[in-house]
């Protein structure tokens, strides 16, 4: 999901984007008193989740809502992202929102923002810098997502159950935390994790790993698949169907994300349960920016609660699904 794009790609793209960010923002500093100028430094456009997140931010920080948004996507280049934030400071925006690409290296530029009196709101990911350098963080709790998926499994499977896991990219925060939360929730239940392998958060990875599992254990040797994201679950569906079994019945599937294609599969009965990983953080972020600028006290961490869907809930939610 948050898979890093080729780092090199950023070098080419970022230069152009920083320039466009500057030029579009040059006339915004002197806007009327009612308009809040906000600089948003996005990581890039590496996934469908990220695209939905960007759309949500753009919608929340719209002119109608009293904002003037200066948008920058850094194509996953940390240096370009810091340069973008620095240019926001030079433009004298009212507030800065950052979705940090990496956790480290933010101290200097955040101090500069603080010295310039510009509050910073972190979105989605966080930083290692001292807490007084930013106003607040708004994002999601991956561990809680894993726990919710695990709780569903623990309630649904009371007989001995053989489970395989399609892990996200090895070492990434969502993969680690979703595994940890799920394992904690199913501890002591008759669910047995018989195998686990990374599918790199991609459909292709999920499909090929699931094919291997099916060859190794046979269709009858697997009862449940836990996929760390919808894309891998969609790949697993293809593999299960190719093996002549029915996904959602012969082999149950639980996953995390709730992207449009995943929800469709849930409605079709091919996935049994999905925990949401909500990219629509825009409204919450816009709300926090307004509060911070008004001088209201805000918590340092705001966790946006994720929903969970079974088939009936998905049928209801799907028509309004934005991503």
């Amino acid at each position: 999901m948050r898979k890093r794009i080729l780092a090199g790609m950023a070098l080419l793209g970022s230069a152009a984007l920083v320039v466009s960010g500057c030029s579009s923002g040059s006339d915004s500093g002197s806007a009327s008193g009612d308009t809040i100028t906000v600089g948003f430094a996005q990581t890039g456009s590496e996934s469908g989740w990220r695209s939905a997140n960007t759309e949500s931010m753009k919608a929340a920080f719209s002119t109608d809502n009293g904002f003037d948004l200066v948008f920058n996507a850094a194509d996953n280049d940390p240096a370009a992202q810091i340069a973008a934030v620095r240019s926001f400071i030079n433009q004298g925006v009212d507030a800065i929102v950052i979705a940090p690409i990496v956790e480290d290296g933010w101290d200097d530029v955040l101090t500069e923002a603080k010295d310039a009196g510009i509050p910073v709101v972190l979105e989605d990911r966080t930083v290692t810098a001292s807490e007084d350098l930013y106003a607040t963080w708004v994002g999601l709790d991956f561990k809680l997502e894993g726990e919710k998926a695990g709780e569903w499994a623990a309630q649904t499977f009371t007989e001995p159950t053989k489970m395989v896991v399609l892990e996200g990219t090895t070492g990434s925060a969502p993969a680690n935390d979703r595994a940890e939360g799920f394992d904690a929730a199913i501890a002591g239940t008759p669910i047995e994790k018989i195998d686990s392998q990374t599918g790199d958060f991609t459909r292709d990875g999920g499909k090929s790993v699931m094919e291997g599992f099916l060859q190794k254990y046979g269709v009858d040797g697997i009862d449940l698949v836990y996929a760390h994201n919808d894309d891998m679950a969609l790949g697993a569906i293809e593999a299960i169907e190719a093996a002549g079994a029915t996904p959602g019945e012969d082999i149950k599937i639980v996953s995390i994300d709730a992207v449009h294609d995943g929800m469709q599969a849930l409605v079709d009965g091919k996935i049994n349960y999905i925990v949401e990983c909500n990219p629509l953080l825009g409204d919450k972020a816009a709300d926090l920016v307004k509060k911070v600028l008004a001088g209201d006290a805000v918590d340092k961490r705001t966790i946006v609660e994720d929903q969970a869907f079974d088939q009936a809930a998905a049928e209801e939610a799907l028509p309004d699904r934005k991503y």
């Binding site: 898979k3 459909r203 292709d204």
Partner: peptide, 16 residues
């Protein structure tokens, strides 16, 4: 073939 295998065009992951 890659796109056909997953019935989808995944511009980030294809041929990564």
């Amino acid at each position: 073939i890659y796109a056909s295998n997953i019935k989808a065009a995944d511009a980030n992951a294809a041929g990564f």
